[in-house]
Design a protein around this nucleic acid. Structure first.
Lengths: 224, 224
DNA sequence: TCCATAAGAGTCATTTGTGTTTCTTACTAC
DNA sequence: GTAGTAAGAAACACAAATGACTCTTATGGA
């Protein structure tokens, strides 16, 4: 048994403590939440997944709701969305929306938790959910628009906030309605057929080049 | 005891049968679903609410998932959304969106059921949820657009389908993100600042009169 | 009126999950 | 090395829900 092998074997018998343990607990809780939803989340299952005992969980969180909420917060904190920088707004936005759809399980877990009663049980408010769901994303979306403004692509003073929010709102809607990845055709339709024409409408776009009026593509959404 | 009093008393002791019983069962299940969510839905509680015994439920539905799904279907069938006819598209649309937000509890109940595992447990597909959530509403939305076309307000051949869907998608999004009624300012912003400009962009509007570019209202959404 | 059916009530056995407690022992700091 | 703390394991008591079963009796149709 080499020194390395012994170190690995010793590691296997070691108890986790402090930060390392808490990270592992919260990660296990998050994974259970994403896989099974809030309703089916149990302390026992989280404990098993984290290779620990329930008493360890109860020493930190009074119950399932508090654990779930802490897991959500932890996940958001430790998994920031990378900010694209493609050099132009359209590509930044499409990249970001693609990243969003790859993480749709997070949205489902959080909204599902709320609808399952989490925020009532944890004695906090739906406003916190909004902060968690939207707050973690708005800075990113704001940043790509700020960058576009810096590049001279966009005049933010002319564009209502709800225009900037719209692509993300529609993505969230679709993710919750279909439980499938949002197809690329839909992402490009949101950007090219809805968002960019609105930017142009408000005179927010500084460089011509946006798609003009086009024949209606009459695209079929993934509804069946 | 008069004849009327005896009739009322007799009614109170009467058993329900057939359609009347089944309607009562499904209504009770729906009400429980809306109040407590899918996770906390129990056969016992539905039975109590319907003033019946669990055996009566089990005689019809093998379990909670089937009952919940049947309740959802029954509710949609028996509660169609009234179709506004104000004489112009904008007011029809705003009226319809207001009706939507008053019924946000339905959306929460259905999406919550899905996220709580209903459609897996009931061995049906998320596509059915989409049909239930969207199908019951798309005909209405389609109708107001058809009417506008008949009135000569709108040229449907020029407008992509996802433009027509957008107001409803955004409403659903907001209802799920805020768990509050969508404020009127937001509804009018969706219609006047997002939807109508897009109609104009595609040349779908036949009569001028839509709002032109306006200074960004920089409206605050209900986020805090 | 009689008969077949099912509504409604109550009971039972089983399972699952919660919350707690006790015990052993790993671990850190002194 | 010692002491204090908490991780991890196991067991316990209790509550809630499920699914099934038995019994009484209301109900509709013949």
């Amino acid at each position: 048994m080499t020194l390395m092998e012994r170190s690995v074997a010793e590691e296997a018998n070691r108890r986790r403590r402090g930060r390392a343990l808490e990270d592992a607990l919260l990660r296990a809780a998050w994974d259970e939440l994403v896989e099974s939803g809030y309703g089916a989340l149990t302390m026992e299952r989280v404990a098993v997944r984290a290779a620990t005992s329930r008493a360890v969980l109860y020493r930190r969180w009074p119950g399932k709701a508090d654990l779930a909420l802490a897991a959500i917060r932890h996940h958001i904190e430790t998994n920031p969305i990378p900010l694209p920088d493609t050099g132009n707004l359209r590509d930044d936005l499409i990249t970001l929306l693609r990243a969003m759809t790859r993480r749709r399980g997070e949205l489902a877990a959080m909204i599902g938790a709320q609808l399952g009663g989490l925020f009532t049980e944890a004695r906090t408010s739906p406003a916190e959910l909004r902060e968690l769901v939207l707050g973690g994303r708005r800075p990113s979306s704001r940043r790509i628009f700020d960058r576009a403004a810096e590049r001279g692509e966009l005049d933010l003073t002319r564009v209502p906030r709800h225009v900037l929010d719209m692509p993300f709102d529609l993505m969230r809607h679709d993710m919750l309605m279909t439980f499938e990845p949002v197809p690329d055709e839909r992402i490009t339709a949101i950007v090219d057929d809805l968002f960019l024409p609105l930017l142009a409408h408000y005179g927010g776009v500084r460089t011509a080049g946006g798609p003009g009026p086009r024949p209606p593509a009459e695209e079929e959404r993934p509804t069946s």
